[in-house]
Write a protein that binds this DNA or RNA. Structure first.
Lengths: 214, 214
DNA sequence: TCCAACACCCTACTCCGGTAGGGTTCCCTG
DNA sequence: CAGGGAACCCTACCGGAGTAGGGTGTTGGA
């Protein structure tokens, strides 16, 4: 016999977990919603005889534990619906959680209304993933830290070249894109390297990893 | 006259925001805590005549609005204490929010106890940042998506080489690190490129951006 | 007016990245 | 035992990356 009205919420941000649990209680008709913030606590809170009807799992648990947790939970409690959530905007996350056995996935920044609809869908036996077009067409905010050319002490032109360098374009294509000679691009690249104290473009790319230009 | 017991919480994850607001009410002695999820709503909720004693600001607001918000809020309500929070683990975030005028910064995955202490410190006029050693010594979970060599169809050796490639090391240093000839490293690099369908190491680096090996 | 900074172009050179085509050893599996 | 694959090494070669050292034209400030 399945307990249709209990839920487990795991998120390493305790406040986030309790916020979600609170929402399940107040807006989704759950009789019980237990927030936990680490994997050990999760398994301790899980009653295999009377499994929860829903588990909400944050993707970004320490050590990437979420995928293993999803897979194991799917085996141990096949009747429990699994909703993965993430603050992230990488499409690869969606594939990963789906493969790991999640029944649904959504972003934390979704409105409570969407969250509620996803939960309802899962409880009805449906799955909830962003479909192909919908997912591709969705505009995800770019979470890379923005940096301006001026901030790096670069000229505007050098900034344009740097942006293409960071995309991995070779000098020849940068030259074509900017309608320059390859040699002029090299000049700008040399200027950038000197300014940033890097030995080659690869150092620039690895050093500015996680940053976005302009 | 400052209202010492009201707070504003802005986070683009509504459930997260209300979770934090709830916590401020139940555990930090606040009489009012308003959760909002976008910038417009934030300014609408702000009463300049009777400013809140605390504002909790998520760093990852859409369009990087948080820094501007912090700076403007600091000007408009200099008595309001500003606590920036982030799910991120980049040290650059800390510098940015401090420069923007935040009085404190902490990670969302902190326990409620730490969160409460930070709030108390801010209300007393102290600031709350991870200090130099404490910050450097702190172990931040790496949030890059882990990928195994096997997952990419690579041999163990190729995996080791790839890991160093992603750090930006040239072939010569990879050879030294692994006690190999530079030529053997090139063999492995060629194998990796073929396997991943890349033309050169730069394509590999840019393509695997945001991933971590093993 | 002169000079500095920027953007643009050139030739010529060195060094590193990557490929091609040879080879040896070890280990595992049919 | 034969075969294949992985790891290791070599020489030789090509092309891109980056430097050195020349040059032109424009702009804007001392």
């Amino acid at each position: 016999m399945i307990n249709r009205t209990s839920a487990l919420v795991i998120d390493d941000h305790p406040l986030s977990a309790s916020g979600i649990a609170e929402f399940l209680l107040s807006h989704c008709g759950f009789a019980a919603a237990r927030p936990v913030s680490d994997v050990a606590e999760f398994w301790a809170a899980l009653d295999p005889v009377n499994p929860p009807s829903l588990a909400v799992v944050d993707f970004w648990l320490p050590d990437g534990a979420s995928l293993g947790l999803l897979a194991e939970l799917k085996q141990r409690c096949p009747t429990t619906r699994l909703l993965a959530i993430s603050a992230d905007d990488d499409a690869a996350v969606l594939d990963k959680v789906r493969l790991a056995g999640a029944d649904g996935f959504l972003h934390k920044q979704e409105s409570p209304e969407v969250f509620g609809r996803a939960v309802a869908a899962l409880l009805q036996g449906d799955s909830w993933f962003y479909g192909g077009v919908k997912f591709a067409g969705r505009e995800f905010p770019n979470k890379e830290l923005p940096v301006t050319a001026a901030e790096l002490g670069l000229t505007a032109r050098q900034g344009q070249v740097l942006a293409m360098m960071l995309k991995g374009l070779p000098n020849k294509r940068i030259a074509l894109n900017l309608s320059l000679s390859e040699q002029t691009v090299k000049e700008h690249v040399s200027g950038i390297l000197e300014r940033l104290g890097a030995r080659n473009r690869i150092e620039v790319i690895t050093r500015l990893r996680g940053r976005r230009l302009e």
